[in-house]
Design a protein around this nucleic acid. Structure first.
Lengths: 382, 382
DNA sequence: TTACTTACCTTACTAAGTAAATTAAGTGGT
DNA sequence: ACCACTTAATTTACTTAGTAAGGTAAGTAA
């Protein structure tokens, strides 16, 4: 979706690392004059800097390498998880400088939650000492579906939210532009751009927690991204009823509650749950259901990589190696060859990384539906 | 993916019908000055015309309605189906003025087929009497996967083609720019833009023929489209081997060959096959497999409408009504509510409509990866 | 020193739009 | 008949984001 030459240049510098203006011109197709002009502007804005040339070519004028200044701009990341909110401040290389979390009750009204999260964000901004004009915007990750404009949370099963205008709400609270995205989708993009999937063209991010969800992301201009309701793929037609209204959904087999029931231990930490479940005789059926749903998802969406996130990111090595062994047999040969299965790189406040990534795409790399905000002089004019 | 204001205006005139410049400005957000300038250029080019105003508002200066001239430009459509090629000439409203078909053997080399198809296209262009500068380009529908650039047929199971550069080949043959797309995907877009799905935001096109395939299309800027390998969704793990390399794929249950085996009649026409199959006692299992794969596909992709194409487009009414009754129970409630199931509007040389649509998107409405070609004066300068 | 190569910058230009003011073409009140 | 009012369309002057062409910078090699 990269639209402007400036966004294209920044994205290349992020993905391929520091390089000379000449090389930028070659790989982007932008004229060298254009690169000069745009990089000059960016240097004025403090967004990129020159670096004392690396290995010069043996001939001709040695190139000057330019690189992104990670701390030149920041975004606020707000991850609304199941009962927990993470707020963080991220630089443009997805480095989180401050993070904070807060608990909430799933029945808490959305607007009350927005106020509390915004208060945390405000105090964090103050504490960080980052001048406000360097903070470009807010990215919000939500545990449910998002409309096409990236402003409304249309539906969240877990909390019961319906058509909540989170972007509007946070913009009003913080005075910064905001975008929202589905949690797993945001994480898919984060892994795709900055994490384990940076070499892959497309990726499916699997998120196991209270439920099981997924997101799909693709790099490049016109790279699409979308939520994937893998938790509600039917793996046992006519099976047990699911909160989604269907029957026999994957989530009724492979998510916290059914796994806990399988293990029969309510005190086990969630990260140990999978290891314990794998010891049970009934595990085979659960694993088969998971494999079937995942195989179908890969067949239909064709990702080059599967990234295991949430509790799957800390799954026992046996689980990962079994999956690497068994999944290829469930997908088409063309997909099978290149298919990689990896653990997620971003953990801990994983959702905050996703939310930050979404904000960066929109407000810094200019690949989202919103105009970039880093040219400060233009923003100052408004 | 609409990028230029000109493309945006044309797309609106297509989707919402003729309207005044003022209204175009309002709904697109383009300044009224811009609309004036752009429409003036388009009128010069002969692409749009004014119409003696419709019902004027009771107050203020009466608006002048503008509309697209369907016969102002043409594209060549080439549909490469299973053993049959359709070549057609289409105006910008997807009206096919000439169509022709030719048979080929599935083992015929791709380049020989290109030559023969191109020869048909050349003679058709001559016969049509359309001046060559009004023919914008070629759209090619292929029975397999296509790379991201819209130029290479990476893989076709039916014919065994691998990495065939159809766009390059037809450009060389015809001297016109070319784009390719997966057949079912092209048809999805055609139904979405001009056919039964014009009110829907997104749609899944199901194509039953020798195999079963599908395509997904979404309207609007950033509207994505992609092939959907529904035929290779596994509906019976460990089942009968499929030519794709997997086992128990839907295509082993629900496509020409297995249906014919079910009915036990080799002479039945393909359009009567489904009706005959529905009478057999084993139909229930086949239908269940279809329902399961389709339900999962809808869950994962979330289309607003399902369009039945190919032999499904002429399926018995009983089939369609059963599907309308049974499918909603297999998808999530949010998807269930708005989900519509309809027969395709484009039949006969259906694939040609798809191919034409793809060409129009790229070369006229400027929503594809290629620059629009309708401004003749610019093209003349090159 | 001179020739050559590659990197980068400057100038002049163009494409594609916008904002603000102006003109056009109707209605209805007096 | 005339004028206020409204909406539509156009014109003018400007802005933004680039490109093309050519010049300058900074090194190596003979």
């Amino acid at each position: 979706m990269t639209r402007t030459a400036a966004g294209e240049i920044l994205t290349r510098l992020r993905d391929a690392g520091p390089m000379s203006r000449a090389e930028l011109s070659r790989i982007t197709g932008i004229s060298s004059a254009g690169v000069t002009k745009i990089t000059a502007q960016m240097r004025l804005e403090g967004v990129i800097r020159e670096r004392s040339a690396a290995e010069a070519a043996p001939i001709g004028r040695p190139p000057v390498t330019v690189e992104i200044c990670p701390e030149s701009r920041y975004v606020v990341a707000i991850h609304l998880g199941a009962g927990q909110v993470h707020v963080a401040l991220s630089d443009v290389s997805l480095g989180l400088s401050l993070t904070e979390s807060l608990e909430y009750d799933l029945s808490e009204p959305a607007d009350a939650l927005v106020s509390r999260a915004a208060e945390v964000a405000r105090s964090m901004i103050v504490r960080s000492g980052v001048p406000s004009e360097r903070i470009l915007g807010v990215g919000i990750g939500v545990p449910g579906s998002v409309d096409a404009t990236g402003r409304v949370n249309t539906h969240s099963i877990l909390t019961g939210w319906q058509d909540v205008h989170f972007a509007d709400a946070f913009e009003a609270e913080l005075g910064l532009p905001a975008v929202i995205e589905h949690n797993a989708t945001a994480l898919a993009l984060a892994e795709c751009c900055y994490g384990i999937g940076s070499e892959a063209e497309s990726l499916l991010y699997l998120l196991l927690g209270k439920g099981i969800g997924a997101g799909f992301a693709q790099t490049g201009p016109d790279g699409r991204r979308n939520a994937v309701e893998i938790g509600h793929v039917v793996v046992e037609p006519g099976g047990r009823p699911c909160r989604c209204g269907g029957r026999g959904c994957l989530e009724r087999f492979f998510s916290e509650e059914p796994l806990r029931a399988l293990v029969g231990d309510q005190d086990l930490s969630r990260s140990d749950l999978l290891a314990a479940a794998m010891q049970r005789p009934e595990w085979g059926k659960v694993y088969e259901a998971f494999l079937q749903a995942l195989g179908t998802t890969v067949t239909l969406l064709g990702p080059e990589m599967i990234v295991l996130g949430g509790d799957l990111g800390v799954a026992p090595e046996a689980f990962v190696s079994e999956l690497r062994r068994d999944l290829p047999g469930r997908v088409m040969p063309q997909q099978r060859d290149g298919l990689r299965i990896e653990r997620a790189r971003f953990t801990d406040p994983a959702g905050a990384y996703g939310a930050a990534c979404i904000a960066l795409e929109s407000f810094f790399y200019a690949t989202g539906p919103v105009a970039p905000r880093w040219p400060l002089r233009r923003a100052g004019r408004a």
